[in-house]
């Protein structure tokens, strides 16, 4: 199977801290790849290197043969990579529906479209796409709610809808279920599973919730102190001594 994302020898320092230490990662197309590891291991930093938020000191990041380094965040997105952030990043002043229509428009129209005279109401297709995704994710009752007034769990789900509506080739999820109730977490698992099965989107998911990880992941990388210490199938990760050490070490 072809690799969707190829990460080779990525290093990143913040002053005296080696946040990423020679990270290698291959994510195969259509798979769900989980990255786990203790707090501060560098998981979010790694994603930042994929989407143009950070530039690694060295290494390469290839997405379907195209380098993701040195291009701007919106170019990364237009190449088919959408990201859900660890702390919800939404358009707080806008409604839930608008929050999802914006990425849908970006997906259809590109980085800039001078459509100042076109009524938004007439964008029925975009609206339908957005509503459909919001239904999948269970936010259909909150279409006209102001996004900032939602609960933290709902904000995460909204952000996931914002990513999904773009039908990305690669979806990056940074702790998508943190702050969610058990029921919402299960619903999220369902949604992601369904999407992965039907649309064959490649996903990278960072999670602390092992239930989520082991239900969804096809493959798991364990990151500790900026280094990938193990990469394997889920069943082999469960009993792995190194992983347990990494987590215990991280708890100190």
């Amino acid at each position: 199977m072809a690799a969707a994302l190829e990460v080779r020898g990525v290093n990143k320092r913040f002053g005296g801290l080696q946040a990423l230490d020679d990270v290698n990662l291959t994510v195969e197309e259509g798979r769900i790849h989980a990255i786990i590891g203790p707090n501060g291991a560098g998981k979010s930093t790694l994603l930042n290197c994929f989407v143009g938020r950070l530039k690694p000191d060295s290494g390469t990041v290839m997405f379907h043969g195209q380098s993701l380094l040195g291009i701007l965040p919106y170019q990364v997105n237009q190449a088919g990579v959408s990201r859900v952030f660890q702390t919800p990043e939404i358009f707080g002043d806008l409604t839930v529906l608008e929050n999802v229509m914006i990425p849908a428009l970006a997906h259809r129209d590109g980085i800039f479209e001078m459509n100042a005279m076109k009524p938004l109401r007439r964008e029925t297709d975009i609206r339908k796409e957005a509503v459909d995704v919001l239904e999948d994710i269970g936010l259909q009752d909150k279409l006209d709610m102001t996004a900032s007034s939602m609960s933290r769990g709902d904000k995460r789900r909204l952000e996931m809808a914002m990513g999904l509506v773009q039908k990305p080739k690669l979806l990056l999820l940074d702790e998508p279920t943190a702050g969610m109730s058990r029921a919402d977490t299960n619903n999220t698992i369902e949604v992601l599973k369904h999407i992965s099965d039907t649309r064959s989107i490649t996903m990278i998911i960072i999670e602390h919730d092992m239930h989520v990880v082991f239900t969804l992941a096809d493959r798991i990388s364990v990151l500790a102190q900026g280094h990938v210490i193990v990469e394997d199938e889920p069943e082999n990760i469960k009993g792995n001594i190194k992983v347990q050490e990494a987590y215990l070490g991280g708890a100190h």
Binding site: N77, F85, I90, F91, I102, P103, N115, K118, L120
Partner: peptide, 28 residues
């Protein structure tokens, strides 16, 4: 009024609300 109610106007509001997020959404 037309500008306020257009997709363009919505993008402008999104810029005010969260400029950085917009670029991760594929908009310049």
């Amino acid at each position: 009024i037309r500008i306020f109610r257009s997709p363009f106007g919505m993008m402008l509001k999104a810029i005010k609300s969260n400029n950085e997020r917009l670029s991760y959404t594929g908009i310049n």
